[in-house]
């Protein structure tokens, strides 16, 4: 195995702080989180009815974000997912690029690990280039963030720029406490629709 086992343990950005930075001034932002660590990250930043954290559906986070962005063109939709989850649904990047919803941003917290299954290296640990895939699929705005300066520059693009936007944020591989959202899917659905639409 050629992956550099140590590299991702020295990336400076910490995923919980990145989630906090993305969500601290969220006003009306609709957030979908891929299963596992990203669902815990957005919950640690503050549980919210307009969060839709996934407990399964691996590979589906970005497509859920697309359906939501098409349905609510006046709202900003942010998908936060992991590198492993994104790798399982790469085709959805090509699908999103065709529809090109300007209100959709996809952010990958890339720790180069399958965090929920024992921190095994993902394809990004071996060099797979997720923003490269997004760009080649037709995303007009793509980028990679490696440090705090990069994050500061990317935040307004992720939250406001006409998209679809795709950013890959390299984050430290670290074991963190679980901060769990509700796990009943019906509750997650109903509270989301109630907050957004006024009906369940």
């Amino acid at each position: 195995m050629d992956a550099d086992e140590k590299q991702s343990e020295t990336y400076p950005l910490r995923r919980r702080r990145v989630a906090q930075a993305l969500l601290q001034d969220r006003r009306g932002l609709l957030v979908v989180a891929g299963l596992g660590s990203c669902a815990w990250d957005i919950t640690a930043a503050g549980d919210d009815p307009l969060n839709f954290p996934l407990w399964g559906a691996m590979g589906g986070a970005s497509a859920i974000g697309l359906g939501l962005a098409l349905a609510r063109p006046e709202s900003r939709v942010l998908v936060i997912t992991g590198d492993g989850e994104m790798l399982m649904g790469l085709g959805s990047l090509a699908t999103i690029a065709i529809q090109a919803p300007p209100n959709l941003a996809i952010v990958v917290f890339d720790n180069e690990r399958y965090g929920e299954t024992g921190m095994q290296p993902t394809h990004t640990a071996f060099g797979a280039d997720l923003p490269g895939v997004a760009k080649a699929s037709g995303f007009p705005v793509t980028g990679q963030v490696d440090d705090q300066g990069g994050l500061d520059a990317a935040l307004p693009v992720i939250l406001k720029a006409p998209g679809p936007v795709f950013f890959n944020i390299k984050v430290r591989a670290e074991d963190l406490d679980f901060v769990l959202p509700p796990k009943e899917g019906v509750i997650l659905k109903q509270r989301f629709r109630q907050a957004l639409l006024g009906e369940t």
Partner: peptide, 13 residues
């Protein structure tokens, strides 16, 4: 992808 897409659509009404 369509199953996931339509889940998002319904969340958005």
């Amino acid at each position: 992808e369509g199953v996931a897409l339509l889940a998002g659509a319904w969340l958005g009404g």
